[in-house]
Design a protein around this nucleic acid. Structure first.
Lengths: 265, 265
DNA sequence: TCAAAAATTTTGGACATTCCACATTAGTAT
DNA sequence: ATACTAATGTGGAATGTCCAAAATTTTTGA
């Protein structure tokens, strides 16, 4: 009888579907709709809660509100302070009317939010949904979104379509992020993301890397480019050791600020 | 004593805050925490539900998920029921492995959410961010996002880039929405959106319009296409009068609610 | 095929929530 | 102050939910 998946799996899939359509479901309704007893539904919900799929409530369940992609903003929710400093510094590189390319990532998205209320008349080309959403409400900013395969994990689009599209534009400044920075240069875990970053760097006059100091000396799958291929690096703490040496030699402009000022007490 | 906002407003603000921290709140707990009777909390929740701020559940409330475009889902927060019925019916037109084009809009986004957990192996081409985000978490679904100028109001991309991009693809079914439907055909307030819809219809074998019956006989700026240019219309209530006549003549397949089915077998 | 294991339903009582009508209180305008 | 309206509290009946244990069905494995 059963061919592809068990009854339980089917039931739980229906629950997820139901939850995708409405913010909450009720045990009793599900029981009727699924033709099983309330107890069974309750057990399903309990199990799904354990697995982190839903959140149990009195009388039913609700989906987990994920503000965004799981792992996109959560990835380092602790680093808000650092990202904030970086974002503010990076904003100072931009002047009204500039054409920007902005990469996907939590740091660049934060930068975009800071940009939104600071500078007018921008044109922003991005492959990141969060960046687009941050900037678009500003009437005076034009946001161009790249095509490509959408990755929920990264919250952006990637692939040959993306690169080919970027190839048709010229920008004043490109802002890219990275999952690591070594003396060799910025690197990233995603190969698809690397190609997009490279293409952005290629099409822009100034080429800025936004990176938290916690990423220093972290080595990942693929090298995006050499240090000397960047024109600016924006970070919140001075690098040390080999990293500092490599930066000095590369001739990249380093934007750092240590003043730890908060919002008025 | 009171200077800025009334007690009720403060209470409801607390409820919203609480809801931002956890996916659901319980009436009883709120009552204790707020120092008011459960009945008052219940009345608050009821009012907030009417205003579309939260969703009432048995024993409490949950936030509305899919936190995206402000004004995107709000536009007609009341029509959830209708959209829900439409979404479920539309899902039944799709089979595993299909290539779909999905337009931007609240109805189509809802459809995408219903699709996400129902059908595997899809390829979806869309100009709508919400659609992409709804479908992308499904590993077995491929989501291709169109390029274009991003409109925060619509939550999607538009313009010549978008149309030119769509022109390169072929789809099994196109699902479009509309702000109005008259005997002439579907129409929309946004000219840019119309062009995208037309292009999607042009590139797909089956051409389905998802529209709530509340949109019947509403006339807006621009006609998207003729009725006969559509192959299917999915709605939740039978049209009447001239609208019904026009539909019969046009030869479009009409899908109206026939729900109340559970899975089983 | 049969028996053990797992999943599901049933049952019943304890407890929680809702709903509604009405009493009470707070807030506001006259 | 007075009268009026909105907001909140109270009580009890009706309904819904939870939980645990036992009975039943389905699935699994040899």
């Amino acid at each position: 009888m059963s061919f592809s998946e068990g009854k339980k799996a089917t039931r739980q899939r229906v629950i997820m579907t139901e939850l995708a359509l409405s913010p909450s479901v009720r045990t009793s309704e599900l029981a009727t709709r699924l033709g099983v007893s309330a107890e069974t539904v309750r057990r399903d919900i309990e199990e799904m809660t354990r697995r982190g799929l839903v959140s149990r409530t009195y009388g039913g369940a609700t989906g987990l509100q994920l503000g965004l992609q799981p792992g996109f903003q959560d990835r380092d929710a602790t680093a808000v302070q650092e990202r904030d400093t970086i974002a503010r510094m990076a904003v100072r590189m931009v002047k009204p009317g500039d054409v920007l390319m902005i990469d996907s990532g939590s740091t660049t998205a934060h930068f975009a939010r800071a940009l939104a209320y600071s500078i007018d008349g921008l044109t922003v080309i991005t492959n990141c949904l969060a960046v687009a959403q941050a900037l678009a409400p500003q009437k005076k900013t034009r946001v161009v979104l790249c095509p490509g395969e959408f990755s929920a994990h990264e919250g952006g689009v990637y692939g040959p379509e993306t690169c080919a599209f970027l190839d048709r534009f010229n920008a004043d400044i490109a802002f890219i992020g990275a999952s690591g920075l070594t003396p060799d240069g910025p690197n990233d875990v995603e190969s698809g993301a690397c190609w997009v970053k490279r293409k952005m760097l290629e099409r822009a006059e100034r080429r800025a890397l936004l990176v938290a100091s916690s990423k220093f000396n972290r080595r990942h799958l693929e090298l995006v480019c050499r240090l000397r291929d960047l024109s600016d690096i924006v970070t919140e703490a001075l690098p040390t050791g080999p990293m500092a040496d490599a930066l000095r030699i590369s001739g990249v402009t380093l934007h750092v600020r240590e003043d730890r000022l908060s919002e008025a007490s």
